[in-house]
């Protein structure tokens, strides 16, 4: 499995967001995208996942294997954490792991409505969906946002495991937690 992006350019209302982006990722590789606010990191991820259109270029990707963890994770305010977990585990036909809930300290919130969760807890809930999905290509937009140190380290371990299990990871992050990405792109240099 390979992810290939060739000469990708994106403009919004005539303003250049990014242009001529090319890269190729093989299984087990990690790409880190950085850049200042508004440099087009999220737009690039959305373009790769097929959510945003782009002016020119080509993307070769197995769309069935994509998982996008964006700023909004489809969490319904008035459903409980348990209902959310149950829905996504049925959706992906994959039981969610109680150990992960414990590790992310979400097990005590299982009966709480999502509206009462903090931003960090919502991010953790979104991560449980990621781990439940069994997708090979992870597109992670600021996955460490709002996470405490323990959860950040847990996510780092999961990313490393996914990499070793022949997954592909594209990660947008302002933090320098990903130490050895196979490829780095700084959209601020554009």
């Amino acid at each position: 499995m390979t992810l290939l992006v060739k000469n990708l350019s994106c403009y919004l209302s005539g303003r250049k967001i990014f242009s001529d982006i090319s890269f190729s990722l093989k299984t087990g590789e990690v790409l880190k995208i950085s850049g200042e606010n508004g440099s087009g990191k999220t737009t690039l991820l959305r373009a790769i996942s097929g959510l945003s259109s782009f002016e020119s270029g080509e993307i070769f990707i197995n769309k069935k294997e994509i998982f996008l963890l964006g700023h909004n994770a489809g969490i319904k305010q008035n459903l409980t954490v348990e209902e959310d977990l149950e829905f996504w585990s049925n959706f992906y036909q994959n039981e969610h792991d109680d150990k992960i809930l414990k590790k992310l300290s979400l097990n005590s919130k299982i009966h709480s409505q999502c509206r009462y969760l903090s931003q960090g807890q919502k991010q953790k809930l979104a991560l449980t969906r990621l781990f439940c999905s069994n997708k090979k290509i992870w597109l992670l937009d600021e996955p460490f946002s709002f996470l405490d140190e323990v959860s950040s380290l847990f996510l780092l371990t999961k990313i490393e495991n996914h990499r070793q299990n022949n997954g592909i990871i594209i990660i947008v992050s302002h933090q320098n937690l990903i130490k050895n990405p196979d490829l780095s792109i700084n959209l601020g240099d554009q």
Binding site: L51, L68, G70, K76, Q77
Partner: peptide
């Protein structure tokens, strides 16, 4: 609108 702003529509689109 809820589904648009909370990202549900994005997820469903990716999941076909």
């Amino acid at each position: 609108q809820d589904d648009y702003y909370d990202g549900t529509l994005d997820i469903y689109r990716i999941e076909n």
